[in-house]
Amino acid sequence: MGSLHRHLKHTAMATGLLAVSLAGPAQAQSQGNLYLGVDLHGWSFSPDRGSNWRDFGVRGKFGGRIAENFAIEAHAATGGSDRSNGATLELDYLMGLFVRGDIPITRYTSLYGLVGFSELKYTLANDSDRDSSVSFGFGGDFQVSNNTSLNIDWIRYINETDYDYSALSLGARWRF
């Protein structure tokens, strides 16, 4: 199963890099194809049995449109720790690569869905572990100026047999 995860991860990364490089010619014709965002990352580490760990970290994202309503988006998050039942869990890092599909609702709002692949590294009771998984989520953008929007999303980053890692994030995105 580990080699399948590595293969999916490498395929997703290669696809993302190809899509972002193909978006290059479109950038010269239209402004706003690339974007950068910063979010408050409210994460939850939920084992199948036992207590949940929850805290806040920070997430950055970078993306590029590859078509009018589709983009490739990369996420990186870190920060936060929680203590439950005498054990401390710390988020070392989270990285993800997604295909994003937007559905315009009004001139200033849109809903979006994300599907991709993520890797999580965490430390639980001084023992580090790393997992990767297919990821999915949904969210909304609310435009506040020509190049700035506020966003909220929920993403299930890791879906392992013995735990899930998901996050509700709130932040801002700038197009350039």
Rank of each mutant, 00 (worst) to 15 (best):
T88F: 08
V115M: 15
A74E: 03
D102R: 13
G80Y: 08
L124F: 06
P104V: 05
F70T: 13
A76C: 12
S84I: 10
E90Y: 09
G60R: 00
G57Q: 04
G57N: 05
G80V: 10
R100V: 07
L94Q: 01
M95R: 10
L94M: 06
E119C: 06
D92M: 06
R59A: 13
D55V: 02
G63T: 04
G79F: 11
Y108W: 03
T123A: 03
T106E: 09
G86R: 09
A125H: 13
F56E: 01
D102L: 05
L97E: 11
L91G: 08
V99Q: 05
N69S: 11
T88Y: 07
G101T: 02
D48T: 15
K121D: 14
V99W: 05
D55Q: 03
R54H: 02
A76Y: 15
N85K: 10
G113M: 12
S51L: 07
L111N: 05
I72N: 01
G60E: 01
G80D: 13
S110Y: 00
T123Q: 04
L94P: 01
W53S: 05
L97Q: 08
V99D: 01
A87V: 06
A67P: 02
S81H: 12
T109Q: 09
G63A: 04
S51F: 05
N85Y: 05
S118P: 05
H75R: 12
H75F: 14
G113W: 13
F62D: 06
I72P: 01
E119Q: 15
N85I: 03
R59I: 00
D102S: 13
R100C: 00
I66E: 01
G60T: 04
S81F: 02
S128N: 12
F117C: 11
N85A: 14
A74T: 09
G80R: 12
G50F: 06
D127W: 02
L120R: 02
R65K: 14
N69Y: 11
I103F: 13
S84C: 11
L97I: 15
N126T: 08
F62K: 03
N126Q: 11
F117R: 15
R107Q: 15
A67F: 09
H75S: 08
I72E: 02
G86H: 12
A67H: 10
E68S: 12
S118A: 13
N69E: 09
G96Q: 05
A77H: 06
N69F: 08
F117L: 13
G79I: 10
G64H: 00
E119W: 11
A71T: 07
A74P: 00
Y108R: 05
F117E: 14
D127L: 05
G57H: 02
S118I: 01
A74S: 10
R49H: 09
I103Y: 14
S84N: 15
D55C: 04
D82Y: 09
G63I: 02
L91I: 13
L124H: 06
H75Y: 14
G63M: 04
L94Y: 03
G80S: 12
G96W: 04
G79V: 09
R54V: 00
D48L: 07
V99K: 02
L89W: 06
V58S: 00
A87H: 11
T109M: 13
R107K: 14
L124R: 10
G116Q: 03
D48H: 11
T106C: 07
L94N: 01
I66C: 01
T78K: 10
K61Y: 08
